[in-house]
Simulated assay, not measured.
Amino acid sequence: MSAQHSAAPSVSASPTPTRLHIVTGKGGTGKTTVAAALALALADEGKRTLLVEVEGRGGIAQLFESEALPYEERKIAVAPGGGDVHALAIDPELALLDYLDMFYKLGRAGRALKKLGAIDFATTIAPGLRDVLLTGKACEAVRRKGASGGRAYDAVVMDAPPTGRITRFLNVNDEVAGLARFGPIHNQAQAVMRVLKSAETAVHLVTLLEEMPVQETVDGVAELRAAGLPVGAVVVNMLRPAVLDEAAVRIATGTAERGHRTAVAKALSQAGLGGARRGGHAERLVEPLLEQAREHAERVALERRERAEIEGLDLPTYELELQGDGIEVGGLYRLANSLREQGIAGVQREGGR
């Protein structure tokens, strides 16, 4: 396993555990997969985690090969250590009904509004309202007490919107609290922001070692920090194994001298791939092999540059290997095990108190 973990000195060693893990990333980086693996990792040793979906894409159900998630918390997996993973797909309309019933005791009147289409109208014309409801429901799960009086969940993992809009998504309650100066809406918005900016919350960013995802990660971290939102860790996903050693990379990135070509042809011949004479089968394989080696060496060099950019963020960094074409449940458990081995469960937000 080629995973590595680098801890940043600026990240607090506070004893306050991270209980709300918000996972974001550029589209295509596998943020939903990482969120699901993280929920499994955090459920180790008998703990309970809740995996929350807010975008309505059904990605969590697909990963766990289950039916589409209803608007209710449902157990979808058991971690190797005996912990439980529950999942919830938040429906903004139903969340608004919960909100109306909780704060205004509308009950049947709220359901009547839904039948009239008023709920759908409200959440459609006011995108910010949708974000308030989505973040509010996740934060309610973080604060909720169980039957024994302790927390209902040891950790909540949110599969959040992409990096490009994560700051606005999380900061919307600050805007709402500023617009509604008093009353239940103001109080609810402030309560949500207290959770989102607390030492219990961390926003993790998923990236690939490619130029655009890394740049979006760098920009996302800057925006989160500027907004005072808690940055957690960077997860480098889909790492491909290195197949050439340092000497081979240096040769591949340089000009293929005649001596190198002859040595490759000889090695191919010794492997039973034809004679090394000019025009032989082994000789014809040399150029395609050297071209593949050059492409691999260029990728290695690019990944090194992008890794240096990530290291410049001064954040804990975790790495996950590519699982091949697609991801299945077994692959999720392997990723969860890798995250546990790297110690991501103990990550703290920047400046945590």
Score class of each variant (00 low, 15 high):
Ala87Gly: 02
Lys114Met: 02
Gln323Ala: 15
Thr167Phe: 10
Pro9Ala: 14
Gln292Trp: 10
Val52Asp: 09
Ala138Tyr: 06
Thr317Ile: 13
Arg181Thr: 15
Glu73Gln: 09
Ala293Leu: 01
Val249Cys: 10
Leu88Asn: 07
Gly330Met: 06
Ile310Phe: 09
Glu306His: 08
Glu65Pro: 01
Ile76Thr: 03
Gln292Thr: 12
Thr262Asp: 15
Ala248Gln: 14
Leu42Glu: 04
Ala43Asp: 06
Val234Asp: 01
Glu328His: 15
Ala155Trp: 07
Ala248Ser: 12
Thr201Trp: 02
Lys114Tyr: 10
Asp154Phe: 01
Phe169Gly: 06
Asn187Gly: 15
Ala3Cys: 13
Leu239Ile: 13
Leu51Asn: 08
Ala345Asp: 11
Ala118Ile: 09
Ala191Gly: 08
Pro161Ala: 13
Val203Asn: 05
Gly220Tyr: 07
Arg111Trp: 03
Asp154Gln: 03
Glu211Leu: 12
Phe64Ile: 04
Thr18Val: 03
Ala138Leu: 09
Ser2His: 13
Gly326Lys: 15
Arg334Leu: 15
Met158Gln: 10
Gly352Ile: 00
Gly150Lys: 14
Gly150Ala: 07
Ala271Val: 00
His204Gln: 08
Pro80Asp: 00
Glu55Phe: 04
Leu51Phe: 08
Val203Cys: 06
Arg130Ile: 07
Ser269Leu: 00
Ala202His: 02
Leu96Asp: 09
Gly280Trp: 02
Thr317Pro: 03
Leu97Asn: 11
Pro15Tyr: 00
Thr49Ser: 06
Leu313His: 06
Arg261Ser: 10
Thr262Ser: 13
Ala160Lys: 08
Pro316Val: 02
Gly136Asn: 08
Pro161Phe: 12
Leu315Gln: 09
Leu51Met: 04
Val214Thr: 14
Val132Ser: 13
Cys139Gln: 12
Pro15Glu: 06
Ser66Lys: 15
Val243Glu: 11
Arg277Glu: 13
Ala199Val: 00
Val347Ile: 12
Gly83Met: 00
Arg307Ala: 10
Glu309Arg: 15
Ala155Ile: 07
Glu211Thr: 07
Arg349Ser: 15
Gly312Pro: 02
His186Glu: 12
Glu291Cys: 01
Ile22Tyr: 00
Arg194Leu: 04
Leu40Gly: 02
Leu290Ser: 02
Pro80Met: 01
Arg151Val: 03
Ile251Pro: 06
Val78Ile: 13
Ala242Thr: 15
Gly117Met: 00
Asp245Val: 01
Gly25Ser: 04
Leu116Tyr: 10
Val85Ile: 08
Leu322Glu: 13
Leu273Cys: 00
Arg168Trp: 13
Pro70Thr: 07
Asp131Tyr: 10
Pro92Asp: 14
Ala77Gly: 07
Lys197Ser: 11
Phe169Met: 10
Gly279Tyr: 01
Arg277Ile: 05
Arg48Ile: 01
Gly275Lys: 04
Val132Phe: 14
